[in-house]
Simulated assay, not measured.
Amino acid sequence: MQNQQLMTSLNNGVQMPLLGLGVYDMYKKEAEQAVSWALEIGYRLIDTASMYRNETEIGNAVRQSSIAREDLFITTKVNNDDQGYEKTLKAFDVSLQKMGLDYVDLYLIHWPIKFTRKFTWKALERLYHEGRVKAIGVANYLIPFLDELRLEATEIPAVNQVEFSPYLYLEDLLKYCQERRIQLQAYSPLVRGQRMSDPKLLSVAEKYQKTPAQIILRWALQLGVSTIPKSSSFDRLKENFSVFDFEISAEDMAYMNSFNENFRIVDDPMELL
């Protein structure tokens, strides 16, 4: 049973786990096995995308699980090439068919593509109003994109999924989203392992007798940021989920906020403006 402390209430009242599994760069049996293990461990949020080319495997794992569909939270995203009003509606049908599901819990615009994003959002609003998705949102939307969307949208995004970590601490974006009841969600929260030997991080990990990954994930959760670390290793999946038995002090949270170095793994969305 999902612990209530792991949940956040989106701006439309839908409940979403704060911690989930991202499945980027996982394919075929690896993807299916990772999701099966994650569900066994206690994960209830699974985040995929058309771009990841593994929706079929994620759907297989979900359907083969003994967990009731209503207790799971499944996210997918419209691919960049499928953006635009009619193309998005068709792409959603394809994603749903691949996963073998009746609905998805969250459907996101994967990237703010310049000439199509406003039409793509209108398609998401239609899917939401028709009840085919429980919530809609965006990914890689920095403040200028969110400001633009406000002028056109009839629905406020429920979630904004962006690259976010102690080393890319987007404090202004976090405050912006919190003020507007948009749930910020972090992908690549563990910086794909590239900062795990940082002496500052190691000192905090040693203090709490936790791994560097656990410290980063706990930091995000205490900021109220949903986080979707990726792993296909059973041991790592367990490690990443074992972050609810301790709390980082306010002083150490502030210290970790100072780790920011604007370090990006993924392209800067501002280059799409």
Rank of each mutant, 00 (worst) to 15 (best):
Q4I: 13
Q5L: 15
L6R: 10
N12M: 09
N12E: 09
G13Y: 01
G13P: 02
M16K: 03
L19G: 01
D25Q: 15
M26H: 03
K29W: 10
E30R: 04
V35P: 06
S36T: 14
A38I: 02
L39C: 04
Y43E: 00
R44D: 00
L45W: 02
L45R: 03
E55G: 07
E57G: 02
G59R: 01
N60P: 08
N60G: 07
V62G: 02
R63I: 11
I67L: 08
A68V: 13
D71Y: 03
D71V: 08
L72F: 11
F73G: 00
F73E: 00
Y85L: 08
E86A: 11
L89R: 00
S95Y: 05
Q97G: 06
M99G: 03
M99E: 00
D102G: 14
V104G: 01
L106Y: 05
L106M: 12
Y107A: 06
W111S: 11
R117Y: 09
K122G: 07
A123G: 08
E130L: 14
V133Q: 01
I136L: 06
L142P: 02
P144C: 09
D147K: 14
E152M: 09
V159F: 07
E163C: 05
E163I: 03
F164G: 08
S165I: 05
Y167I: 01
L170F: 12
L170V: 11
D172N: 15
D172S: 15
K175F: 12
Y176L: 05
C177F: 02
Q178K: 10
L184N: 01
S197P: 01
K200F: 08
S203H: 13
E206R: 11
K207Y: 08
K207M: 09
T211K: 07
T211P: 00
P212V: 05
Q214P: 07
I215K: 02
R218G: 03
P229T: 04
S232C: 13
S232Q: 12
K238H: 12
F241Y: 13
F244M: 04
F246A: 05
Y255I: 07
F259L: 13
F259A: 13
E261L: 10
R264H: 13
I265M: 15
V266G: 04
D268W: 10
P269K: 02
